[in-house]
Nucleic acid binder design. Structure first.
Length: 259
DNA sequence: ATGGCTATCGCGGATAGA
């Protein structure tokens, strides 16, 4: 079973890129972020024609997340992150596919910092930690996949000082990510590549892709019940170099079928 | 400190992203 996450940065603007990658990579489950489309603007027909069932939550201009399943219909278990009914952002969806509970999440960026956006980032990620604790306690296979908007360690960003004040790299942000790992979740990309440099995002500006000036922001966290079935994990970097690409590349894991 | 790119919405320029 291959499970992927991809911050698509506008699903309609980038539908051709997405369909080409689906055909080439053949993932069984895809978590998408930054749809940038209202619910009714989601290209459901094209996704279905590609062989995928889909569930999603949209929003007029920003955010928006989805879960796709090859030859299957995801069974929705949540369409928002619990903990704040006043939070209207479409940043979280959760569904069961093939015996695995999948969460597709798009954490707030948090810039500029300090300020209300940074406060929202920290509060949202605290809510994610609470939801993750509930899911972990179920002792079932779970994958938390998406754009966490946190660079876990200094080696997960290219050598630069320009991000020193950025919300993505702050000790507070990193401590939140560490608390998720401390619950028992496995960072699949890091687990499979303990010493490599891994990036999933390259800014459009200043030739950051051409210079490989990237950041690791997109993560797949596996509950113990999935981690012990982990076979491989990687980033489809080539996708970032395609014409009209998203500024993120897809990341994915493969796991053995249930023992 | 700013600008640098790209997106939506909608037709100019504001706002967000990271």
């Amino acid at each position: 079973m291959k499970i992927a996450t991809f911050n698509i940065n506008g699903i309609n603007r980038r539908l051709d890129n997405l369909l080409a990658w689906l055909k080439a990579a053949e993932p069984d489950v895809v978590c998408l972020q930054e749809l940038k489309a209202r619910h009714e603007q989601f290209p459901a027909a094209a996704i279905e024609a590609a062989g995928y069932g889909a569930v999603w939550v949209g929003e007029p201009r920003w955010n928006g997340v989805a879960i796709l399943a090859r030859d299957a219909e995801p069974i929705v278990t949540a369409t928002s992150l619990p903990g704040d009914p006043a939070d209207r952002h479409s940043r979280y969806i959760e569904a069961a596919v093939g015996g695995v509970l999948i969460a597709s999440l798009y954490a707030p960026n948090g810039n500029p910092r300090p300020g209300p956006k940074y406060d929202y980032k920290l509060a949202w990620t605290e809510r994610l930690i609470s939801r993750a604790a509930e899911l972990e306690a179920m002792k079932v296979p779970v994958v938390l996949a998406g754009d966490f908007n946190i660079v876990p360690e200094p080696r997960d960003i290219y050598p630069t000082r320009s991000y020193d004040e950025n919300a993505l790299v702050q000790p507070e942000s990193r401590a939140l990510y560490q608390r998720l790992l401390d619950q028992g979740w496995a960072d699949a990309l890091r687990k499979k590549h303990p010493r490599e440099t891994i990036y999933t995002f390259w800014d459009y500006m200043r030739q950051r892709w051409e210079r490989d000036a990237g950041l690791r922001l997109d993560h797949l966290l596996l509950s113990k019940q999935v981690a012990r079935r982990l076979v491989s994990a990687d980033v489809d970097r080539d996708v970032r170099g395609m014409p009209g690409a998203s500024d993120h590349a897809p990341a994915w894991v493969t796991v053995r079928s249930r023992e």
